[in-house]
Each structure stands twice: as structure tokens, then as C-alpha cells.
């Protein structure tokens, strides 16, 4: 390297490499390394501390025999399906309404989006209060004269997950609306002009032209909503803490509880590996759509 003006190999472009060291460490140590570690140790009998005793799929067998895990999966499935359906339809509907050259568009947009700035803890606590069985909506409606009105989803094992859904949708649909609105603004004005000339009703234009055109936007939104659903944790902690009983447990909470408070690491790691598998399954179609055929075309 003595006096060489163009050093080769490792020292070439050295500053950029130094700048990228945090990224390289994050990518290799955290994202790859930690994931492999977790997957690996999910095949061991680790309890409060990680041990190297290989037990095959025993943790997974136990996991799927645990009723709490089954409830968690069922809950996240219900929450996921409804959350995707409602946030896409509500988000699109709101965006379509806002796209009609309405007055006060900014005011409406600000109102629809502000809950997204709030944390899930704040969201959960507000809705816990609104849905409070003693003082909340039920109490108010009964006070109006509807004595038999019953709406206390938080204290009912069968409906508590829908209470989480109401709160989650309140927090998250604004984001979907914002993305959809950006998508709608990207639609060529000519399409609207042409359809007006042809006398095609607006809803038909949306269904047969606009929505198919916005497929990439929908897919991106879906991935975004999907990864949010898998991470659902804070909202449950704030709103129900898994109750009543274990009726609103979710996978992320199962992992946390078994790892950090119950000292059953193997179970936590097995559960987290299942979460990872679910995410990969969701991601593959997206990666295919985003990077697959388009590159070849």
C-alpha cells in the first residue's frame, strides 16, 4: 500500500465500507444471526436458559397441544381477516370519497389520519374506556331508554377480539386511506373524462378500471397491514392484557410471556419460529408480484 494511489481489495472505497459497518452488523448479526439462533434453539429443551440439548420437534408438538397457543392463532386469524377486509374497504372508500374534489379535504384527511400518530398503548386505553362495561357505550345507550341494549365486548370471551379489532381499525385505516388516496391521485384524468363521455357510472369505473389498475397499491398495503397484524402486541397489553381468561391472547404475547416471564424459552422460540414462517408465507406472493414477472417483462 506504500504510496499506491489506487489501493485495491478491502481498503478500496474504505470510507463507504466504514459507513456501512452498522448496516452490515445489523444485517448479519441481528437479522440473519439472531433469527438462525432462535430457529436453532427452538429444537432444544431450553427452559429458563438456552441449553444445547436437541429434542427435535418436541417444542412444536407441545406448542400445538397448548390451548393458549391455539386460542392465540385463532384470534390472530379472526383479527387478521377482518382487519384486512375492513381496512382495505374502509380505507379505499374514504380515499374515494376524498378524491371527489371535496371541500375541506385537508381537514378530513387530518382527522382520518391522526390516530395513526398515536401509539397502540394510547389507542388501547382510550377504547378500553369507551367500551368500559360500567360507564361506556352500553351505559350511555341504556341511559337513552334502551334498557336491554347490550354492548360490552371487553367482558365477553367470545367478542373481546372484535373490541381489539374496532380499536385497531380506528388506529390504522387512516394509513390505508392515505396510501390509497396517493394511488387514486396517480390515476390518469383522461380515464375519468372518457368514462364521463361514455356515460359509465362512477362506481363501475372504480370496480372495473381503477381498482384493477391499483393492484400494486393494494398489494403493498396488504403487506403493510399483514406485517402489522403479525406484530399485534401492544394493543392487547393495553386493552385486555389477554383477558378475560385467555380469550384475547395473541402469538406475539405468547412468545413474550414464555420467554421473559414464564422462563420457558423453548416454547417462546418455537412460537416465534411459527410467526416467522407465517410472515415468510405472506411475503412470498408479494415478492413474486413485485419482483417476479415485472423484471422479465
Amino acid at each position: 500500500m506504500s504510496g499506491d494511489r489506487r489501493p485495491s481489495g478491502l481498503t478500496r472505497n474504505l470510507n463507504a465500507k466504514i459507513a456501512a459497518v452498522p448496516m452490515i452488523l445489523t444485517a448479519l448479526v441481528v437479522f440473519v444471526g439472531c433469527s438462525i439462533w432462535s430457529i436453532g434453539y427452538s429444537f432444544t429443551s431450553s427452559n429458563s436458559l438456552p441449553v444445547n440439548e436437541f429434542v427435535g420437534l418436541a417444542q412444536y408438538e407441545r406448542l400445538f397441544k397448548t390451548s393458549r397457543w391455539i386460542v392465540s392463532l385463532k384470534n390472530i386469524a379472526i383479527y387478521g381477516v377482518f382487519s384486512i377486509f375492513f381496512s382495505l374497504t374502509m380505507g379505499f372508500l374514504l380515499a374515494a370519497l376524498l378524491d371527489q374534489k371535496v371541500r375541506f379535504e385537508n381537514v378530513f384527511r387530518t382527522i382520518f389520519l391522526y390516530p395513526f400518530a398515536l401509539s397502540f398503548i394510547v389507542t388501547g386505553l382510550v377504547w378500553q374506556w369507551i367500551l368500559n362495561p360500567t360507564f361506556g357505550i352500553e351505559h350511555v345507550v341504556r341511559g337513552l331508554g334502551f334498557e336491554t341494549f347490550s354492548f360490552a365486548p371487553l367482558s365477553d370471551r367470545n367478542t373481546v377480539i372484535y373490541a381489539l379489532l374496532i380499536a385497531g381499525l380506528w388506529q390504522g385505516t387512516g394509513l390505508v386511506m392515505a396510501i390509497m388516496l396517493a394511488g387514486l391521485r396517480g390515476v390518469d384524468e383522461e380515464i375519468w373524462k372518457a368514462s364521463r363521455v361514455e356515460g359509465i357510472p362512477a362506481w363501475r369505473v372504480y370496480v372495473s378500471v381503477i381498482i384493477p389498475m391499483m393492484k400494486p397499491v393494494f398489494v403493498t398495503t396488504l403487506v403493510l397491514i399483514g406485517s402489522g397484524i403479525v406484530r399485534l402486541y401492544d394493543l392487547v397489553i393495553a386493552m385486555t392484557n389477554g383477558g378475560p381468561g385467555a380469550s384475547s391472547e395473541v402469538p406475539a404475547k405468547y412468545v413474550y410471556d414464555f420467554m421473559f416471564s414464564r422462563g420457558n424459552l423453548g416454547q417462546g422460540l418455537a412460537a416465534s419460529t411459527i410467526m416467522l414462517i407465517v410472515v415468510i408465507t405472506i411475503m412470498i406472493p408479494w415478492i413474486y408480484i413485485e419482483y417476479g414477472p415485472k423484471k422479465r417483462a
Binding site: 433469527s35 432462535s38 422460540l269 416465534s272
Partner: peptide, 13 residues
């Protein structure tokens, strides 16, 4: 791609 990994997977390590 790593940003899509659930945090729970990486927490303990």
C-alpha cells in the same frame, strides 16, 4: 427483507 421479520424472533438473542 429483515425488516419484515417479527421482532419476537430476534428478541432473545
Amino acid at each position: 427483507i429483515g425488516s419484515f421479520i417479527p421482532y419476537q424472533v430476534m428478541l432473545y438473542p
